[in-house]
């Protein structure tokens, strides 16, 4: 049994089949990339996995648990967390508060502890803050933690979103185009950070357009086109797969091989 397994999953919006019988799996500790042209259905796959959409048909399991019947909250608690293609931070909250919201499901004090500032509140809130600070430091956001999220540059905001996803203690992290809007230096740093996550034992499913990132970092790659998986394999295989080149890479072939 795979860590994450999807079999023949379908998502229809009215007459449109956004995801049409796709199957894939992710093993523990892997970095797997999901690529494909715009509108292929990649983000929709994430929305299905995280319970934003109720899938039309198919099977999805995570560590043997059936994801199709779980609420988004249960899925997060089971250990899957994500970022969004179009940033969805809490813009008017501070960076550290954003990450603290990520730790929320593991809060070990209740409403009354918070209201009366009990020792338990102080201890547990302190522990949550310590955890948030550690995460922020590891992703290089230590200096920004007091800033309000919407005051940061785009690339930094993306990192806050990743930090927030990590804070849920997820085992599997879904990253939806994390390098979008980053300059080459920033995406190189992101690459390093994602590798570090893997070293720490996280499993990562990545949607990414930046081929230099994808080819460099992925253990395996899936290619989605018009809602169907058209190819699967190692980065080298994908880069040379004629179906992929036709559907997706096209003129970009050189670019992909250039790395």
């Amino acid at each position: 049994m795979s860590f994450l397994e999807a079999k023949n999953i379908c998502m229809q919006f009215g007459g449109l089949s956004a995801v049409d019988g796709a199957s894939f799996h992710v093993d523990q500790g892997e970095i797997v990339s999901l690529i494909g042209p715009n509108g292929a259905g990649k983000t929709t796959v994430f929305n299905m996995l995280t319970g934003v959409y109720t899938i039309t048909s198919g099977e999805m399991t995570f560590e043997g648990k059936d994801l199709t019947t779980m609420t988004p909250q249960q899925i997060v608690k089971a250990g899957i967390s994500r970022t969004f293609q179009n940033l969805r931070l809490f813009p008017k909250m501070r960076v550290i508060e954003n990450v603290l919201v990520g730790t929320h499901i593991h809060t070990k004090y209740n409403f009354w502890d918070g209201l009366f500032r009990t020792p338990r509140f102080k201890r547990e809130e302190g522990a949550m803050e310590a955890k948030a600070v550690r995460i922020l430091r590891s992703i290089g956001l230590e200096k920004d933690m007091h800033s309000y999220a919407d005051s940061l540059p785009y690339g930094e905001q993306r990192k806050v979103e990743i930090a927030r996803a990590i804070a849920t203690d997820a085992k599997l992290i879904l990253l939806d185009e994390p390098a979008a809007g980053m300059n080459p230096a920033e995406s190189a740093e992101l690459l390093r950070f994602i590798r570090e996550l893997k070293d720490k034992g996280y499993t990562i499913l990545l949607i990414e357009h930046d081929m230099s990132v994808v080819m460099n970092i992925s253990d395996r790659i899936y290619v989605l086109d018009h809602g169907k998986m058209i190819a699967e394999g190692l980065p080298q295989e994908i880069a040379n797969d004629p179906r992929v080149i036709e559907a997706y890479l096209g003129g970009e072939q050189k670019h992909a091989e250039g790395n």
Binding site: P72, Q73, V101, H104
Partner: peptide
């Protein structure tokens, strides 16, 4: 405050 800022993102934090 998180719900005020983005309800879906809050849901996605469990």
């Amino acid at each position: 405050f998180a719900i005020k800022d983005d309800e879906l993102a809050s849901t996605m934090m469990g």
